[in-house]
Design a protein around this nucleic acid. Structure first.
Lengths: 330, 330
DNA sequence: AGCATCGAGTTAATCGTTTAACTGATTCCA
DNA sequence: TGGAATCAGTTAAACGATTAACTCGATGCT
């Protein structure tokens, strides 16, 4: 099979006996032409199977009609939800969404982001991006929406209040009569510190505080692996808060394998409210961090910026406590 | 802040006192120049913060160095795994991966795919793509890797043997002493029919067959919703196979809520072996459909095709039964 | 009639790169 | 010594679109 070169606008123009300018304007609906000419172009176009070349178009218009979204890991439902939300809004506005998965590799990160940034009109970044890159982007005049708190020219920040989220969770656990707390954190995440702080402050109300453990990845495997260390310590905690639902689910599973009853012996909770948390046994208490909404808002604000509405302020979403049986009353 | 136009290769050339051709060759490492000239260019480049414009480059080289991957839903861990696998291979080979989520919207699908196809060198498609589009792609000389069985010029197919997978599962359940079977299918999926067939054939060995129910989406919510209809039928099944793990997890949860014991009263199984299946309570029996490996293989074959190695045959991956407690011996 | 306006379409420059073909100057080798 | 080969770089034509500025004829208005 011969790989035929795709038809160009010139081919169409020639075959229809008009100039390329005419074809271009017709395709983009910028001008009406005589019925006769329009019909001829239409016919030629689908006879040749002509499709615009978006690259060539972008070169001259300076717009790619696409935006980039950089995430840490598609497999994490939190990020998948962000993608989903952002995608929906993008499609509605006729923008393409290019998702890049950073794979937790900081080395590639810079490269990938750099390459991506030249292909898109704007960027949504949910990872620890080097500030240098942020500045470079802003300097190019490309709007950047950043998940997190960042004060930077040309960058708008969107986030869900992690302090408040953890605080609510802490108070919830306290109100259920829990006494000895542990927090399984993921220190590499930018949200980790504020969640821990919110939790501690919440617990401080009853004069308690959480013992801190750390995992290296925000996965159920890690939650499972650290479980025995947390629960077999002397003065075993009766409530464990994990950095996210994935960790919590792994943790809870292993706790049950160790013969402990959840929530009777130990309460377990996470963050994100991923879809499967509701279907765990027992269903997992968590805090809805509005992942999908984050994606939606981020995209809306980015597209707004592209349309010339430079945002005046950052967006702070409110978390929502989702109390389920994994922290049921003791 | 003024959105400064990014520096072009011409700016660099001018500032370094050389021609653009020189700069271009230098950047692409195609030719060595005198130490003096190279140093000057290097200096100018990072003083100006110059980065190649990949669009302009693609225009003339005819290659975008990126490939597209179309999936049905990022939120489904099966697809997330495919993305992961494909992404890994793409990065290794210095290709960009553009993921588009088709959102189950067949109308947009055509458009999105059409637009995407012009931005990439090749495409991996895991959805029911219109054959017309496939042909158009093949005609443009863009390699297409398709998940599924398809006989088409310029298209290579990759899949995991769904018949075999379901067959194994059926025999497994039979061997555990189960007698009355149900299958909760997702008829819109292209794999549904072969899984059902494999299951029925597997059950036929003990002279049994599965009663079929259908859901509209492959989600835990749907699994939950259909559960009572399946289990409260007279002659209640003692083994239920679901189209995928998500459905199965929702189903199992609801079964337990209805007061049934899994696996004692009813065995539940799914397909895909998503990460959380292992952490369900009880852990879910499933068949590993090698989602990630599918992504890896698809990308390898696509990049191979781009490098000129047109594949001689389709790839068929072997599923792997993962027997866990949700189908434990009765 | 005279002049401005409008409609339908064209011309040609442009976007930021790459690359084939070229130029001079130097070096190599017989 | 003289021609070929190499080196270090340049010139200019693409790639496939968009678009500002133009042309040419017809129409409208007074």
């Amino acid at each position: 099979m011969q790989p035929k070169k795709p038809a160009t606008i010139r081919d169409v123009a020639a075959a229809a006996g008009v100039s390329t300018a005419t074809v271009s304007k017709f395709i983009n609906g910028q001008q009406r032409f005589s019925a006769e000419v329009e019909a001829r172009m239409k016919a030629v176009i689908d006879q040749l199977g002509y499709r615009q070349n978006p690259l060539a178009r972008s070169m001259v218009t300076g717009q790619t009609k696409s935006v980039g979204l950089a995430i840490m890991d598609v497999r994490n439902p939190h990020f998948a939800n962000i993608v989903k939300g952002a995608n929906r809004v993008a499609i509605e506005h006729d923008y393409n969404l290019l998702v890049v998965d950073l794979e937790e590799s900081p080395k590639r990160e810079q490269e990938l982001l750099g390459a991506l940034s030249r292909r898109v009109d704007g960027l949504i970044v949910s990872s620890r991006i080097p500030l240098e890159t942020v500045d470079w982007l802003a300097q190019q005049g490309k709007p950047v929406v950043f998940f997190g708190a960042i004060q930077r020219q040309g960058v708008v920040a969107v986030r869900t209040d992690g302090y408040r989220a953890a605080n609510m969770l802490g108070r919830h656990l306290a109100s259920q009569g829990r006494k000895r707390f542990a927090y399984v954190g993921f220190p590499q995440a930018r949200w980790n510190a504020e969640r821990l702080q919110g939790l501690q402050d919440g617990l401080a109300q009853i004069g308690a505080s959480a013992k801190v453990f750390d995992v290296n990845l925000p996965t159920p495997e890690e939650g499972e692996a650290i479980c025995s260390r947390v629960l077999l310590a002397d003065d075993r905690p009766d409530a464990v808060v994990c950095y996210n639902d994935l960790i919590a689910l792994g943790f809870m599973h292993e706790a049950q394998s160790l013969g402990l009853k959840v929530p009777d012996d130990v309460a377990v909770a996470g963050f994100d409210d991923i879809p499967l948390s509701r279907y765990a046994n027992p269903p997992l208490t968590t805090v809805d961090m509005q992942s999908e909404r984050q994606g939606v808002v981020a995209m809306e604000r980015l597209l707004g910026a592209l349309a010339g509405n430079w945002p005046d302020a950052d967006t702070l979403l409110e978390p929502r406590l989702v109390a389920r049986q994994s922290t049921g009353r003791q």
